[in-house]
Design a protein around this nucleic acid. Sequence first.
DNA 1: CTGAAAGCGCTTACAG
DNA 2: CTGAAAGCGCTTACAG
Lengths: 338, 338
Amino acid sequence: MAQDTPVQPRPHRVTAADVAHQAGVSRSAVSRAFTPGAYLHQDKREHILKVAAELGYRPNALAAVLQGKGRSHLVAIVTGSLENFYDSEILSRLVQQLIAQGKWPVVLGGDDVPEADVMAVLGFPLDAMIVRGGSVPDEVVDHCAKLQIPMIVSGRILDHPGIDSVCCESEQGAALAVQALVEKGRRRIAYLGGQADLSSERERRAGFLSAMAAAGLAPVALTTGNYSYDGGLESTRSLLEQHPEIDGLFCANDAMALGALAVATGEMKRRVPETLSIIGFDDIALARWPSFGLTTIRNDIEETVSQMMRLLARRLDTPSAPAELVRIRPEFVPRLTH
Amino acid sequence: MAQDTPVQPRPHRVTAADVAHQAGVSRSAVSRAFTPGAYLHQDKREHILKVAAELGYRPNALAAVLQGKGRSHLVAIVTGSLENFYDSEILSRLVQQLIAQGKWPVVLGGDDVPEADVMAVLGFPLDAMIVRGGSVPDEVVDHCAKLQIPMIVSGRILDHPGIDSVCCESEQGAALAVQALVEKGRRRIAYLGGQADLSSERERRAGFLSAMAAAGLAPVALTTGNYSYDGGLESTRSLLEQHPEIDGLFCANDAMALGALAVATGEMKRRVPETLSIIGFDDIALARWPSFGLTTIRNDIEETVSQMMRLLARRLDTPSAPAELVRIRPEFVPRLTH
DNA sequence: CTGAAAGCGCTTACAG
DNA sequence: CTGAAAGCGCTTACAG
């Protein structure tokens, strides 16, 4: 098989025609050999499969998709930063469940996914697109929706007729946190939030503010830590320097809460929970680690992912179904930091 | 545009022919309008692009791949469990860099990727397949190689002519750890490893054993924690119960070391590093957190990923290039736990 | 049960 | 500069 032509830029992939030729049958027969229900004499099928195996043939999935009226089984996932544990845990489950359903996840991720990339992936006849959190601007999402590609959005709410979403009842979650703080006798409470343009942040903050008001309390401070550990670390440092009287801190996600906990108990020599309560949001795996024992508001990951999968299946089944919004009910998880 | 036929299983995707019809030009012209260098009257191109935008048309990437002699730009990534931070950090960078290079990562992941899934993804005319760690049995990898699909493997070494790999010089890394322990006066040293069938585990263990021997020491114990935090937790608990004399612990990855640290300083009331030194391996982001300050052996993630990308580019460029094995040089990172 | 033919949506020589 | 035609690799009626 050695060639004396110059480097082959792309090695020839063996094709149904090659197998047909080698096995002395028609291309239709080869195709049938790989199609479970198809009529084909048993001996013939075995022979074809054998030849195919020798040649290392497998049907080109792209050609199959193109030809049939079927689906591509390609599902794009646009995720937020994988360095933030919550998104990473979601992605992990999502990938596994999609694969288990026979779908192929094409992942675009990292902090800000360039709009051009999101548009470009739409070049594929995707079965669907899954968008996590605030990774993509609303306009892009809207635009995608016009392209008739089913979209499942999580972590934000988008009011578009064809877009399904699953989202935590964040306001209520924030209220649970405030309530827990107040019950422990905390009165000088601060809020550490994420990026102001994310709907999760807006809801958590709004929930915090109204629960505080309801408790007759004014927040000592409102600050932001970009939803990251390092952000939590830095913001909490200046927060506690400027307002040493703070005795309760609600963080809009666990990553920041863990950062807050580290500075508070480390550098700032605060005793948690004796003189300072810290409550996070999400309940990532790290929150359960004995090193932390972070008290938090659970934003159930399992449940979120299985709802996304359910919405996906439903949408694929009934493309014209009305948009569905699933609300995940938050839950207070007491541990050691409050 | 409303139809009174029953539910359309898959909404018609607008096609070049639709645009051609609507714009009153040939299908070739439509194609040219989307091909940067192609000859096409400027006015005509603009008109076509305008009509295309109205109709929400974009060329079907699958058809384009099928037709041309070009590449698909699809790259499969088979990753280990995303719950283990090291793989998750690698994946994150890999995805971003692939996208930046115009490749589309199709991700299969989770603990054990079913062999059938790995084989199935090969139905796509992939540009390449990237395999992380021990996520796939050697036989499958070998088989894939026969299919002429370029493979880049990281975290294990596979002796196959066409497979490139990048791998940490683990034996040397383990030796660095032992050396650091010995220099601190530790003499009763134990080893906490990962799954015995992974080549990284074999190398780290071998490196540990020979460095111990070189220092004239016999290991107090050799145990395993499955490379996970929880595994580290449990194994260390019984390790310290059975061998309270241990004064140095080398863990084959950071996740286990963090688990070890938690039990040791928590439940077991050991003082780290005063009476017990703990050293990890990898240097994941968590190791740098002030809450931990884990002393570890850096298995440079940035470097690993950029080498994988370099090998990929090289292989795509020269499919017949000889297999290359890149060794990443480990580095001792002293922090607070030794 | 089986093969020749049409067609999926595109791009790219080929001939104006 | 432009269109008609061929062909990428497949699957699926269609006619034996």
